[in-house]
């Protein structure tokens, strides 16, 4: 009798086919993850090798050394480049947080003549490739004497259309009740924006922070056009990385060490804001 009870109350195991399928899925996922991780691993590995060793295909260096990291930080002006990138990416991120959120709020909530047309124009700029804008932008900045200057670089990135779009989409998802409650609470337009709407849009602001900072930190194209032909003191980190490549030689360990260091701030920001970032991007219906 006791045996009967045990056999009826025991939970039957999942079928073998189910467990096998799950195992397969996990193996595949691990493989795909590894695929994405290999380049990073290769970067670190190369950074720890000596230059002659980089020609081989060994992942593990024979005599791992931090020499390349040291050289990057001492012989090259890496700290300066990093600081430049930080200033530019930081300033542009702040500008976008303020202006894209204000603009996004206006496009989402204010009724004004030509709103839709204007918004379409903003979206249309997303379809114009940077290469097409290069000559007019360069000419404009030359006329204003802003080539080779941080201001030139910042000026053309003050409000990025993607960020404006993202903010607008997010504001659209916030119920109007909050603003109406604020109106009845005697809050004006700017106070409502600052005290009510901006805090509610925190996930979108996090998304804007990551997207903008990452985009500007990694930017090579405009850095090269605006800052790349003058004083090396205004070089950004991406321009700095290009210095490790010469016509007949590339300093692979130094390049990889610098690349690994350059990734760090982005990785940190992503780790910090990731939770909000996903919420922001999902709610805005925008892909990152």
């Amino acid at each position: 009798m006791a045996v009967d009870v045990a056999s009826t109350s025991a939970i039957p195991r999942r079928p073998l086919s189910y467990r096998a399928r799950r195992l397969l899925v996990y193996v595949l996922l691990v493989l795909v993850s590894a695929l994405f991780f290999v380049p990073f691993l290769w970067t670190i590995s190369t950074a720890l090798k000596s230059l002659p060793e980089t020609t081989g295909f060994d992942l593990v260096p024979d005599n791992p050394s931090l020499r390349a990291f040291r050289e990057v930080l001492t012989d090259f002006n890496f700290a300066r480049f990093a600081l430049n990138s930080f200033i530019l990416a930081g300033a542009i991120t702040v500008a976008n947080l303020v202006l894209a959120s204000l603009g996004g709020y206006a496009f989402a909530r204010l009724r004004f003549p030509g709103r839709e047309v204007l918004f379409m124009l903003v979206l249309a700029t997303l379809m114009i490739p940077d290469q097409l804008r290069l000559v007019p932008v360069f000419q404009m900045l030359t006329n204003w004497g802003l080539v080779g200057s941080f201001f030139g670089f910042i000026a053309i990135h003050l409000v990025l259309p993607t960020e404006l779009f993202l903010m607008r989409q997010y504001f659209l998802t916030i119920p109007k009740d909050f603003e109406e409650a604020a109106k009845l609470d005697n809050a004006g337009f700017l106070k409502t924006y600052w005290k009510v709407m901006l805090p509610l849009a925190a996930p979108a602001l996090a998304a804007v922070t990551i997207l903008t900072f990452q985009g500007m930190w990694n930017d090579f194209f405009w850095s090269l056009i605006i800052l790349g032909f003058g004083d090396p003191d205004v070089y950004t980190i991406q321009l700095g990385l290009a210095q490790f490549r010469f016509q007949y030689q590339t300093l692979w360990p130094q390049l990889m060490a610098a690349s690994a260091l350059a990734i760090l701030p982005i990785a940190l920001i992503y780790v910090f804001f990731q939770r909000y970032f996903v919420a922001g991007v999902v709610a805005s219906g925008v892909k990152g």
Binding site: P175, D177, E180, A181, A182, L184, D185, P199, L200
Partner: peptide
């Protein structure tokens, strides 16, 4: 008159409490 100047207070269906 603007809503704030009417000296009325409203309770919303969603309550509309500021979540932050």
């Amino acid at each position: 008159l603007a809503p704030g100047a009417r000296d009325v207070a409203m309770v919303f269906q969603s309550y509309a409490l500021y979540p932050h």
